[in-house]
């Protein structure tokens, strides 16, 4: 167990090292895409500031609280674009083009391998902006922070990342079941708007759908509520269980789906 963990850990960092070497080789590309990422991040903050300024509130969240939420989203988004997008694109392509054989024959978990082999560093500035604005926004709300609150926030951020990853992996794994759907990977990025808003935005059927059945509306809300001192235990427990459950489901779904794979041993 220990040996296996160590092997996976070392492999994870080996890939990061390779990606860093690539970055150093294509420096211009890094700066260009970083600029694009920064501009979209600024645009996103601006867009929400316009909406909030219309009536000074969104579902009962004031401007500072909304900035906490948007910053939480921005931090999650930085990881989403850095890790998940690159890996899931390679993963689905390998299924459609019959290149999965390479991964299936490696002496490590295939799910692990296809999930960590790629990453981009273009969103580092997005992450930095998210953290800086988060700190400023929390200060502006004047909510007292304790070490316990920060630790709980970090824990739920990790759970949110796990949930996004699992969801994306499940959708990408559907590539084993469909003939060819090139934009299958765009499904999760297109739903990002759902976790960019407070869960109070969803009411009636939408509330049941996006906070209970498929709790996309909780992804940024739960960590933000924790930081703002308005987290509710029942929602935290429910969301935690759902996030871990979806990870387990994604592994199970991959195991049954991979049996449908056929390739010519490239």
């Amino acid at each position: 167990m220990y040996k296996s963990l160590r092997k996976h850990w070392r492999l994870f960092w080996k890939f990061r090292q390779l990606r860093l070497m690539l970055l150093l080789e294509y420096r211009n590309s890094f700066f260009f895409w970083s600029l694009v990422s920064v501009l979209w991040t600024a645009f996103n903050y601006f867009f929400f500031s316009l909406i909030v300024s219309a009536n000074n509130t969104i579902a009962g969240w004031n401007q500072s609280e909304m900035y906490v939420l948007i910053s939480t989203f921005t931090i999650l988004d930085a990881f989403t674009w850095s890790f998940f997008y690159a890996n899931m694109t390679t993963y689905t392509k390998s299924i459609f083009y019959g290149e999965m054989t390479t991964y299936l024959t490696r002496p490590v978990s295939t799910q692990f391998l296809v999930s960590i082999q790629n990453n981009s560093f273009n969103n580092i500035f997005r992450l930095v902006i998210g953290i800086v604005v988060l700190v400023k926004a929390v200060q502006a709300t004047q909510v007292p922070l304790s070490l316990g609150t920060i630790l709980l926030y970090v824990t739920f951020m990790i759970l949110s990342l796990l949930f996004i990853y699992s969801l994306w992996f499940i959708v990408a794994t559907c590539a084993f079941w469909v003939e060819r759907l090139d934009n299958i990977n765009e499904l999760i990025p297109a739903t990002r708007r759902m976790w960019q808003v407070p869960r109070g935005v969803y009411s009636g059927l939408a509330s049941t759908l996006f906070t209970v059945i498929l709790p996309l509306g909780l992804i940024s809300t739960i960590p933000s509520e924790i930081l703002l001192g308005k987290g509710e235990l029942r929602w935290m427990v429910y969301y935690g269980i759902f996030a871990v459950g979806s990870l387990l489901f994604s592994t199970w779904f991959f195991r049954i789906s991979v049996k449908r794979y056929s390739g010519v041993g490239n």
Partner: peptide, 24 residues
């Protein structure tokens, strides 16, 4: 799928505005 993917974020934006208009 592209058409659906353009409608989903719009639906969320509509919901955001519904909550912005609460009381106005």
């Amino acid at each position: 799928l592209w058409i659906l993917l353009s409608i989903v974020p719009t639906a969320v934006v509509l919901l955001i505005w519904v909550s912005v208009y609460q009381g106005a």
